[in-house]
């Protein structure tokens, strides 16, 4: 019983072919799993283990090291707000607080505090499914999230892959 659908299984094989050692494919395959499933489920990790010839514990050990992999179901929209020093002194935390409160009860929107996004030239900055938005304010940030919800903006997958 395969976790990956046929199209992604083909992609998985391509990914595996890139590397001299199958284990190298764990990260890209985990991204692929999130593109398909919206989070990194145990079933996904078990199949990644099979594909890479590792144990499931091995895959869990690797994937749990990286913050982009969500091991619990999360919203369709992951809003990552930077509060590192540059954003800290120009209003990042205020944006975070506002969005957290605003979307506290919306399971489809996961708001998270993140480290420096390399967008300090446009601080405060945030990402929605890894698409950048700079010089945001609490209200503009909310408008941005809403525009994704309404479909006015097309969101990438929770792992940041473009959706065709």
């Amino acid at each position: 019983m395969s976790f990956f659908d046929d199209a992604n299984l083909t992609k998985a094989k391509e990914i595996l072919a890139r590397y001299p050692r199958a284990k190298s494919a764990i990260l890209p395959l985990a991204h692929l799993a999130q593109d398909q499933n919206g989070w990194l489920s145990p079933e996904a990790m078990e199949q990644i283990a099979d594909l890479t010839g590792c144990t499931a514990a091995d895959v869990l050990g690797t994937c749990s090291f990286y913050t982009m992999f969500k091991r619990r179901p999360c919203g369709k929209l992951v809003v990552s707000v930077c509060t590192n020093v540059t954003c800290l002194v120009v209003g990042g935390p205020e944006v975070l607080d506002h969005l957290e409160e605003r979307y506290a009860t919306e399971p489809d929107v996961t708001v998270e505090e993140v480290e420096c996004l390399a967008a300090c030239g446009g601080a405060p900055a945030l990402q929605v499914n890894y698409e950048f938005h700079e010089r945001v304010s609490p209200s503009s940030a909310e408008e941005i999230v809403e525009s994704y919800k309404s479909g006015a903006r097309r969101a990438r997958t929770v792992s940041g892959a473009p959706v065709a």
Partner: peptide
Amino acid sequence: DTLIDFIDRGDRMQVLNFEEQ
């Protein structure tokens, strides 16, 4: 028998087995 590994990182790092295995 690679059935246990560290999960998470930094001071949240802990030894664990996989789910039901």
